[in-house]
Amino acid sequence: MSKLIEFCDVVKKFNGIPVLNGVTFSVEKGEVLCIVGPSGTGKSVTLKHLVRLLTPTSGSVIVDGVDVATCSDAELVKLRDRIGYLFQGGALLAWMTVAENVALPLEECTKLPDREIAVRVRHALRAVELVGAADKYPTEISGGMQKRAGLARAVVRESDIVLYDEPTSGLDPVTSITINRLIKKLNKELGITSIVVTHDLQGALAIADRILLLKGGKAVECSTPAEFTQSQKPDVREFLAAMKGETT
């Protein structure tokens, strides 16, 4: 297995205040990495570095051998084409229906015939259980449904890397399980390398190959689910205790 994504000692400051303070981790090809951690520790910021929506103050972010922060625009486009991104808020375009939103990346960036696009969109919507809402506008559906529509849009291109920013928060437990299964299935069947930011520890334990705990701007622990739950590091114990308190 080869390292597809590497964060090397990434520091990111906003207005002088470090949010990421020397984060180092790597993701292997075909792996599911779950990032967990308290709210506001920079999980979304970490994901944004992978597509150069943010650039590190120091350190480097490397995707498939390319330094994201310094690569040329042409290389960046090529890189972004390989990456699907689910934003925390869904980020759907308001004047398009759910189906049109999901079709957008295919219509604008591929030369697929309309019929093929329709098939793929339908397939993606079925996977997130949104076929019934295909012709509704984003403002007419609930937050959880918007999130699932965003998820469908992120995976419809079948990119080889997909970044999920909280795919299950705001969803009911049953749908959460469906979504987690979907992420795992895409990973297994298509070999999609996935980074999943989540607050859902049970979900993370179920789908992750490895779990990364981000706290205070550092990657505190990065290990397999089994090791993670057994870890003796105080930060991990504290996090697990907090999570247990929440679920009981």
Binding site: V77, F87, A91, L104, E108
Partner: peptide, 21 residues
């Protein structure tokens, strides 16, 4: 509104130029 909702960022990542679009 699109900018603060990350919609512009989403377009850029999908290689749909917000300028053109």
């Amino acid at each position: 509104t699109m900018k603060v909702n990350d919609e512009i960022a989403a377009l850029e990542i999908m290689s749909i130029s917000p300028i053109r679009y």
